[in-house]
Design a protein around this nucleic acid. Structure first.
Lengths: 152, 152
DNA sequence: TCAAATAGTTCCAACATCAAAATAATAGCA
DNA sequence: TGCTATTATTTTGATGTTGGAACTATTTGA
């Protein structure tokens, strides 16, 4: 790969994420969900609709400590996005679920991402999509090699 | 695009950035540059080698406030990565430059990114590279449309 | 000449985060 | 059964990041 191309792709890769976050934050401010941050939405996304994962599970997926998640969940409960559900079989566990409002934001966020990916792959056929997925998998493998810490 | 593919690509797009940051942070801890965070390295990257941009310019590119950059630069000066250069023509401006140590970390970071992009585009020919670049540009255009705030 | 504008810095409050200690519940074993 | 160790979560205290407002230094222009 020539130097200029590497530079351009690197530039795109490194700026795109910040742009996504900024656009999502902006969209939230303009929506009916003004009281929630993008980080909190990502927590809602991981908590998700049906699984009722435990606090530790969710913390691990978000790569934050359980203590940090506890305070985050406190906020999300106060703002009526998340509910705590004590496990009946083992009362040490706290399982997390979404409220009606939580499910609303979950779906709004999901829909934004769907649109985003569609714009990303605009006008591309299956073969081209496969190339893109391959590139992203290459990148993941490279990172995985550099830090083999398991993700879940 | 079918639902499953959209889901997979979305998943990859959203996790990859966090993984990059984590791997870079890890690499720093294991290198000779243990006293610098990845955010600070990104500041070094924007300050860059030869331009001597002003504080406001750098702050705008990093999308942080000038006040925040001032404290960041204080740290980077104390740790001998960055130097302040008063403009002689207009003494209100502070221009930022890298020290020898700053240039070292700049090049190390650049080299990491070069390797990363190469892994990303492993085994791909020019045509395939073009598809990838196109996809990233599509995504940028989508985001640009959602938030037309200029980047520089 | 001096008021307005511009660039940067200082200061403070809000927030996120982690590590360690504390609390609550369960499991395992004598 | 009755402890003791283990596990899951929460609380607490300390630290670092950030933005915004007030402030300082300098330049511009009427």
């Amino acid at each position: 790969m020539d130097y200029a191309t590497a530079k351009r792709i690197n530039q795109l890769l490194t700026t795109v994420y910040g742009d996504i976050v900024r656009v999502e934050e902006l969209a939230l401010r303009q929506s009916q969900f003004k009281d929630i941050s993008i980080k909190e939405v990502h927590a809602v996304d991981v908590i998700s609709m049906y699984e009722h994962k435990t606090t530790s599970q969710v913390a691990r997926e978000l790569r934050i400590t359980p203590g940090t998640l506890t305070t985050m969940v406190n906020h999300l409960v106060r703002k009526d996005y998340v509910q705590r559900i004590r496990s009946d079989d083992d009362r040490r566990f706290v399982r997390l679920g979404l409220t009606r409002r939580g499910r609303l934001i979950y779906r709004a966020h999901e829909s934004f991402h769907r649109k985003m990916v569609e714009s990303f792959a605009k006008d591309m056929d299956d073969e081209q999509l496969q190339i893109i997925e391959k590139a992203l998998l290459n990148l993941e493998a490279f990172l995985e090699f550099a830090d083999p810490t398991p993700k879940k």
